[in-house]
Amino acid sequence: MVYKIRDKETGKVYEVTIDEETNEITVYDVKTGKPVKTVNMTIEELKEAGYEVEPV
């Protein structure tokens, strides 16, 4: 599923895909559409880390 996340401190917005089964999150560069990095976190962990998470 695709989400937009926003860093509450910097205001930067990222587009991510989240595999609900493995909790693998792939972060994409919004301008190029290319993957930047992959992390292993849940949506709740993202929120605790200071991100706003919205489904696209």
Rank of each mutant, 00 (worst) to 15 (best):
Gly33Glu: 03
Tyr51Ile: 02
Tyr51Pro: 01
Val13Glu: 11
Glu9Lys: 15
Thr10Arg: 02
Val13Ile: 11
Thr38Ala: 05
Val39Asn: 03
Lys12Ala: 13
Ile25Ala: 05
Lys31Arg: 07
Lys8Gly: 04
Lys47Tyr: 10
Asn23Arg: 09
Tyr3Asn: 01
Gly33Asp: 03
Gly50Cys: 05
Glu20Met: 12
Lys31Gln: 14
Lys4Pro: 00
Ile25Trp: 04
Glu24Lys: 11
Tyr51Ser: 01
Gly11Met: 03
Glu44Leu: 09
Tyr51Leu: 03
Tyr28Gly: 00
Glu21Trp: 08
Val36Glu: 05
Asn23Gln: 09
Tyr14Ser: 01
Tyr3Trp: 10
Lys31Pro: 09
Ala49Arg: 10
Val13Tyr: 09
Asp29Ile: 04
Asn23Ser: 08
Glu15His: 15
Glu9Leu: 14
Ile25Val: 08
Val36Ser: 05
Ile25Asp: 00
Tyr14Phe: 09
Lys37Thr: 11
Tyr28Ile: 08
Ile5Pro: 00
Met41Thr: 06
Glu44Pro: 06
Met41Ala: 07
Val56Asp: 07
Glu52Val: 07
Glu21Arg: 12
Lys47Trp: 10
Ile43Phe: 08
Val2Asp: 08
Pro35Cys: 10
Ile43His: 02
Ile25Ser: 02
Lys34Arg: 10
Arg6Gly: 01
Val2Lys: 15
Glu54Leu: 14
Leu46Asn: 00
Thr17Ser: 08
Tyr28Pro: 00
Gly11His: 03
Glu24Cys: 13
Glu15Trp: 15
Ile5Cys: 07
Asp7Pro: 00
Lys12Ile: 14
Lys31Asp: 14
Val53Ala: 04
Lys8Pro: 13
Tyr51Ala: 02
Val56His: 09
Lys12Asp: 10
Lys31Ala: 14
Glu20Arg: 12
Ile5Gln: 00
Asp7Ile: 03
Val39His: 05
Val53Trp: 08
Val16Lys: 00
Asp19Ala: 05
Ile25Thr: 03
Glu9Val: 14
Ile5Glu: 00
Val27Trp: 15
Lys37Met: 15
Glu48Ile: 10
Gly33Ser: 05
Gly11Pro: 00
Glu54Pro: 03
Pro55Tyr: 09
Asp29Ala: 02
Val36Cys: 15
Met41Pro: 01
Val27Ser: 03
Val27Tyr: 14
Glu20Gln: 12
Thr38Asp: 04
Leu46Val: 07
Val16Gly: 06
Met41Val: 07
